[in-house]
């Protein structure tokens, strides 16, 4: 699976949504309705999925699914 697919699948699981409803341009809070606690769960879930430790200040500043994909790709490329 690609990073995009994995991010979408993780987002769908945490937010209890169908993956087909999630696209890269969607905002976690405004479009997908993520509550503040779910934002924390998303960060934890991405870390678990990709086995990484993201800087929380940077990770919590990411607002969209595409932003998360880019951030994680950048992190994995380091």
């Amino acid at each position: 699976m690609t990073v995009e697919e994995r991010v979408i699948n993780v987002t769908a699981k945490v937010l209890h949504m169908d993956p087909t409803e999630i696209t890269l341009d969607k905002s976690f809070t405004e479009d997908l309705g993520a509550q503040s606690v779910q934002s924390i769960e998303l960060v934890a879930a991405f870390e678990e999925e990709f086995d990484i430790e993201m800087d929380e200040d940077e990770a919590l500043a990411v607002t969209t699914v595409g932003g998360a994909v880019n951030y994680i790709k950048t992190y994995l490329d380091k």
Partner: peptide, 8 residues
């Protein structure tokens, strides 16, 4: 669960 969910 302990998280790093707070921005400094």
């Amino acid at each position: 669960a302990i998280t790093r969910g707070q921005k400094f």
